[in-house]
Each structure stands twice: as structure tokens, then as C-alpha cells.
């Protein structure tokens, strides 16, 4: 069912496992910051972080002997797809909930609820329009 980690791979196991979560967070952070600040130039960095996450997952899978069965391979696939898509899904949800919140609250200061753009990187098509902007 499981093949334990080799003694020589202990450190690599801990390092690669920590890297999965940390680079997952860096990817999510850069992805969201690039969007919220309208800085598309950061997006390649975000996907670079995902690439490191990808390598970390593969390394972890190798040292923990996950490639030996279809079940554990499915875990690797779910992790890779999940970490890739979750920030996209959450971003859409953020935009949607904040936009809906504007429409429901007529006295709200609408500028308050819009992501604050920074001064550079003004590619209009880059920022996902919320419902309010779209209308």
C-alpha cells in the first residue's frame, strides 16, 4: 500500500512538501497582486512560482514513492490541477461578491469596494471586469 521514505530522502521530503505550500502561496499572492494592481508583468512571475510548485510536487511524489500506484498518482494530479486553478476560481468569486455587494448597498462608497489600481500597467483587458464595471 505504501512504501516509506528512504532515510536519505528525509530532508528532501520536508523541503519539497514545505515548498509545495509556500510556492502555492507565492503563486496565489503574485497572481492576485498582478490582477488587483493591474500589473500583468507580474503574471509570468506568478506562473514561475507555480512552476516551482510543480517541480516540488513531482519531487515530493518521487521521494515519497507516490508514482507506484494509480491512486497516489491521482493525488499528484489533483494537487497540481487544484493549486493551478484555485486562485483563478477564488479571484472570480472575489470580483463577483464585491460587485454584488455594491449593487445591494446603495449608500456604500463605491470607490471603497473597487480594487485600488497602482500607477503602472494599465492594460484594460487584463483586469477582470466586475459586474458593475461591465454594466
Amino acid at each position: 500500500m505504501i512504501e516509506p521514505v528512504k532515510l536519505a530522502d528525509f530532508f528532501l521530503t520536508f523541503l519539497s512538501a514545505a515548498s509545495v505550500i509556500l510556492f502555492g502561496a507565492v503563486y496565489a499572492l503574485l497572481f492576485a497582486y498582478a490582477k488587483v494592481s493591474k500589473m500583468p508583468r507580474l503574471m509570468p512571475l506568478a506562473y514561475s512560482a507555480y512552476a516551482v510548485l510543480f517541480a516540488s510536487v513531482i519531487t515530493l511524489a518521487k521521494v515519497t514513492n507516490l508514482f507506484g500506484s494509480a491512486f497516489w498518482i491521482s493525488l499528484v494530479v489533483v494537487m497540481l490541477v487544484g493549486y493551478l486553478l484555485a486562485p483563478h476560481a477564488i479571484w472570480h468569486l472575489c470580483v463577483g461578491t464585491h460587485a454584488a455587494s455594491h449593487h445591494d448597498d446603495p449608500v456604500a462608497d463605491k470607490s471603497d469596494q473597487t480594487p485600488a489600481p497602482l500607477n503602472f500597467g494599465s492594460v484594460n483587458t487584463f483586469h477582470q471586469p466586475c459586474k458593475e464595471e461591465a454594466t
Partner: peptide, 12 residues
């Protein structure tokens, strides 16, 4: 990890 996106969005 997914919640990091929400935190960044809200900070913005």
C-alpha cells in the same frame, strides 16, 4: 492557499 487570493484582494 486559495484564501491568499482573497486576502490580497481585500487588502487592495
Amino acid at each position: 492557499v486559495a484564501m491568499v487570493v482573497h486576502a490580497v484582494y481585500d487588502a487592495g
